[in-house]
Every structure is written in C-alpha cells, then in structure tokens.
Design a protein around this nucleic acid. Structure first.
Length: 257
DNA sequence: TACGGAATAT
DNA sequence: GATATTCCGT
C-alpha cells in the first residue's frame, strides 16, 4: 500500500476479508519483524497440524521431512524398518475434493477434502518381504490378505499389497534401484521370455470379464468347460483351483527379482 | 459383507 | 510411471 492511496476504510475492509495485516508503505523495520514473526508462527502451526494428520492416518510412509517409520502403537514392533522410504511432495500434499461433503457455508475450511493416501514406495527391501511372504504361502494362498499377514508390515494395507501383486503379476514393477539405473527401460519388454507365451506369476483367478481379443497374453485360450463350471459354482474362488488351472501358480525362483 | 482382480485415476 | 482407488464380480 503506497502512501498516496492509503485509505483507512479499505484497511478495515481488508481485515474483514481475511487480511492479516494492512500497513502504509514504506514499511518500518518493526512492522517487518512483526510480519515475519507471524509467518514463522503460521508455518510452525501448519507443520504441527500436518504431522498430527500423518500420525492419525496410521500410514508408515515417511514424510518428506524424513522421519523414520514404525508401529505407532507398538514401538517395539520393528520387524521391518524401511530405511529408504520417501514420497513425492505432490503426493504428500495432494488433496482430493469430495463433492458430496461440500458444506453449506462455502468457507474454505468446511469444504470436504479427503487426502489421497500417501504413496508407498516399494523398495527392494519391501518387495523382498513381499516375495518372502509369497514363498512362505505356496500352494493355494497367494492372495493379498494372506500376503499382507505374512509380511507383517505395520500400516501396509491389503489394497496396497493387491496393487503391488497386480503389478508383479503383469511384470510391471521394477525396484527403485533398477529404475534409477535404467530409467527408460520398459519392464515388460526386457528380454528373457522373448516371443514365447508369458507365464503369469503367483497364480491368478480366472478372468471374469470379457476381454479384448488382442489382450489375451496371459490367457489360456477360450474358457474351457471346466473354467465356466468353476465360475458358476464359485469354485473359481477357491485357491486350489488356481493350481489346477494355472501352470505358473508356483513362483519360480527364476521369475523372481 | 469381505474379498480378489482388472481397469482406471491420480 | 508408480501407486492408489474404483468398479464389478463372487
């Protein structure tokens, strides 16, 4: 605000509309010190609130500030400690707007906002845990819930395991180290299996939805009578069915990272 | 209702 | 591109 257009009524109006401070230029040092104190205090407050939210969300993901992770409720549960966990700033601060929770008074504070869960980074160590779990499970139990239980990682969710399992089955996952060394490489097109039919790893349930004809890389051709029957009777949901149906059900060491 | 998996969103 | 979320099936 320059000395010429300084207007007391405008100052009142500005404060009413949420301004923290209204002052005449040039600003004196006292005023500036006051301003900076306010900024510092607000910043600290925001940090505290964010940290509180982070703990409330019971996620074990390490925030950008680099605090380690552990089981909040059981500090001694250090069965697995992610030493390299991190997430992107965008993810940490990302907020998703939820329309149905939009509130009547239209103020910013009351708009329903839901945080998208912070991204888990599947480090080599975490992935090893995942693979270990799968190897322990063996016949008939390679499902996200079982894997999650075997992994015993505080804060990790079944959804996250399911998502990772999906990527691993489709060979869409590379460790962060690998990604770093060959940033452009496509995990799907990396040599080994060549033109031969790919094996699906860790078993799979029969595909239930109609699929496009060109996208049958993992399929075993048209659904057999056995498969249709299995789906009808619910047998398809029984883990054992997978080993009957899928030759790649047992994870082969060669297929593992 | 809880879960799995594919598809889709972020 | 990696991961979370949604959708739809059992």
């Amino acid at each position: 605000m320059s000395p010429v257009d300084y207007d007391p009524s405008m100052a009142v109006s500005a404060i009413d509309n949420g301004a923290f401070l209204y002052f005449k230029r040039p600003a004196n040092p006292e005023m500036l010190r006051y301003l900076w104190q306010h900024v510092a205090r607000e910043t600290m407050h925001m940090r505290v609130m964010r940290e509180r939210e982070r703990l409330m969300s019971a996620s074990y993901i390490t925030p950008p500030c680099g605090v380690g992770f552990g089981d909040v409720e059981n500090p001694n549960n250090n069965s697995f400690v992610m030493d390299n966990g991190k997430c992107k700033m965008n993810d940490y601060y990302n907020e998703k707007y939820v329309e149905k929770e939009y509130n009547f008074d239209n103020s910013r504070m009351s708009q329903g906002k839901v945080k998208r869960k912070m991204c888990t980074e599947w480090t080599k160590e975490l992935h090893e845990k995942f693979i270990d779990a799968i190897n322990q499970l063996g016949d008939g139990s390679i499902f996200p819930k079982e894997i999650l239980e075997k992994m015993n990682v505080p804060g990790l969710t079944r959804m996250q395991v399911a998502s990772h399992l999906q990527n691993c089955r489709n060979e869409n996952w590379r460790s962060p180290e690998e990604r770093k060394s060959t940033p452009g490489a496509n995990p799907k097109s990396s040599g080994r299996e060549g033109s031969s039919r790919k094996l699906r790893r860790f078993g799979s349930m029969p595909r239930l939805k109609k699929e496009k004809s060109e996208d049958r890389a993992y399929d075993h051709g048209p659904r057999s009578e056995m498969e249709s029957k299995a789906t009808e009777t619910g047998m398809a949901n029984q883990p054992m069915y997978n080993s009957m149906r899928n030759e790649a059900f047992h994870p082969h060491p060669e297929l593992l990272h």
